[in-house]
Amino acid sequence: MAEMTEEKLAEFLEPLKEILSRYEKKERYLIPVLQEAQEEYGYLPEEVMKEIALGLNLSLSQVYGVVTFYSQFHQQPRGNNIVRVCMGTACHVRGGEGILNAIKDELGIEAGETTDDLEFTLESVACIGACGLAPVIMVNDDTHGRLTPEKVPEIMAKYK
């Protein structure tokens, strides 16, 4: 995140302070606070983690440790659409890798990244429980199965 002036930062952190004000300064509230903060900001920028550490009387490393441990927490902004490509066994055997590569090409990002226009975030995930349709991807809550790399541009276009 670009450097902010002190006033800008204070303004930016205003909603977080409100969240923190509702919790006791205890380590056990770290996860709920992180969840609420992520809801508010869409992700967890460094400034937010720092403020949470101060607010709950924890060290920044403790907050960082928890954020990096749980996959639900994100340190980068997330796209409007979340594309999850299954890399489970069934999908892998049926060409999941090729699907992932096709999507990478189409969106111009790697797995774990978000497009500059914040439209798409790409993730590779383990089995999503639709093995019968392998290879499978999910875009937000929609499942797209029996894919071929050729079908990828068409599907992505629907969400732009």
């Binding site: 460094e46 983690m49 060290s59 920044l60 490393s61 403790q62 960082y64 440790g65 441990f69």
Partner: peptide
């Protein structure tokens, strides 16, 4: 102090500082 923590998970799991900063730059 809690300057060092377990971070990430699985094969990527490492013990490090917040944002992997040099120990000199933190508390």
């Amino acid at each position: 102090v809690s300057a060092l923590q377990f971070t990430e998970r699985g094969f990527n799991s490492i013990v490090t500082t917040a944002f992997d900063l040099p120990q000199a730059d933190i508390n």
